[in-house]
Amino acid sequence: MDFTKEKFQLLAISSLTLPWLISLAFNYHHPALTQTLLSGLAVVSASFLISWAAETAEMDVPRSFSLAIVALLAVLPEYAVDGYFAWKAGSVGGEYVHYATANMTGANRLLIGIGWSLVAFIAFRTLKSKEVELDDGIRLEIFFLFLATLYAFTLPLKGHISPFDALVFVSLYAIYIYLSTKAEREEVEVGGVPAYLCSLKTETRRLSVVVLFLFAGFTILMSVEAFSEGLLETARIAGIDEFLAVQWIAPLASESPELIVAIYFVRRFRVSASMNALISSKVNQWTLLIGTIAIIYSISAFKLQSLPLDARQSEEVLLTAAQSLFAVAILLDLKISWKEASALFLLFIVQLLFPGVEVRYIISAIYIILSLPILFAKRKEIVESFRTVKRLIS
């Protein structure tokens, strides 16, 4: 098989990291906007490399375990950006405390509002259907997303993310990962660059995966501070709300490869694989990411303490939890219709275009009001999800 196109893609994406890495090597300082663009381009390119390496690595790990691990690896750039803000929040304080939460809530809402709905719309068109059915294996993700969402509603009430909260969220993710090793998964059929890498000899393939992971990790490590600080400075110069820039632009850059890969799966009629990957990513961002930023905040401050949530942050967490509840309610029956996908998209767009306090509360209320009757109507599906987890435990 001719992999000329795939080789070019791998080379091209890798090359896009070089402008920023060369600037660092020669200690060349750019204006804020250029710094943001070059370092952001490096992060996005590294994200693609991680996604390709993670998908290729599925050949050498158990299939049942691969989905959760790939989903985790795919969002490492998001963890790096949010981890940076959490570290600065603990060591410097000030506005960085707000930015850590802003980036986390933005990433979570973007994943559902744009990611889930966009994949669903493409699936409707590809399959020529107004409803998409998902496989039964997704119940594990739905169950843990449901638990994490219910617990997340306590955070705005307390006004902080405590070390205990971090322990709860990280434990939920650890249990989810453990159970995912027992769950049956769809066999993965790779394409694009991963298909080229999988065609290599075993030793060469494994070495390539390690090199890609190390290079991408190094690139992200060397770019995340410049991207984060450049984004803040660019927002100040342009007169844009820094909170909103951190909340939406940073996650859009770090998660774009993940969305592109999901769309690629849908175009190949692998809708369940695409949605499974996005939902698994939502699980780890809504559990491990929340726990991680609280832990990094304490480590950076050299003492065990809670990450504070002011009024604005509490509203954002409430809105994110409400959206998550609505998304879980929709998927409980393992189906998503064009009306439900439209609701996810439109409600997200409204909160994006009108970022006011009243709008956040109104949209939160709409999410919850819509969710409750759906949850009641699908209560048997909740029980079935619990039974799925119970079977995996036993």
Rank of each mutant, 00 (worst) to 15 (best):
R270A: 13
S281H: 09
F218D: 04
R236C: 05
F218S: 07
P308Q: 08
I237D: 06
A245I: 05
L221Y: 12
E242S: 01
A253L: 15
E186H: 13
A311L: 13
R312Y: 15
A238W: 09
V209A: 09
E258V: 04
Q305W: 08
L231Q: 01
S272D: 09
N284Q: 15
V261F: 13
F227S: 03
P251M: 11
S280N: 09
S298K: 03
G230E: 04
L197G: 01
L232K: 09
A216G: 03
L172R: 13
G291R: 06
S208W: 05
S254Q: 04
S306I: 03
I249S: 13
M275Y: 05
V283D: 03
A250F: 02
L307K: 02
A235H: 05
E187R: 12
F227K: 04
I260N: 04
T181R: 13
C198D: 14
I290A: 09
R205M: 08
V246H: 05
E189F: 14
A253H: 01
I260Q: 08
E184D: 11
I220L: 06
A245T: 07
V193W: 01
E233V: 04
R270C: 07
M222G: 10
V246R: 01
C198L: 06
P257T: 05
A301T: 05
E242T: 15
L207G: 12
Q313P: 03
F169R: 03
A253G: 00
K201V: 02
F218W: 06
L288P: 06
L244H: 05
M222T: 11
L278C: 12
E233C: 08
M275I: 15
G191A: 15
L221C: 07
R267L: 15
A311I: 02
T234R: 00
Y178K: 10
F215A: 11
P257E: 12
N276P: 10
G239R: 01
T292N: 00
V211H: 09
I279W: 02
A294E: 08
S300M: 04
F302H: 13
M222R: 10
A262V: 09
F215D: 02
A226L: 06
G192P: 02
A195D: 11
V261T: 07
I290E: 01
E189M: 07
V190M: 08
L288K: 12
P257V: 00
P194C: 02
I220G: 04
L212R: 07
Y196H: 09
L304N: 12
L304Y: 01
S298N: 10
R236G: 05
A250I: 03
V261C: 10
I237Q: 12
E315V: 04
A294I: 01
R206C: 04
Q247E: 14
E255A: 13
L278K: 07
Y297N: 12
G191K: 07
L252V: 00
V170W: 03
L278W: 09
T181A: 14
S306F: 08
I290P: 11
L244C: 06
I293L: 10
A301V: 00
I295S: 06
E229N: 10
L259S: 02
V271F: 14
R206A: 04
I279K: 03
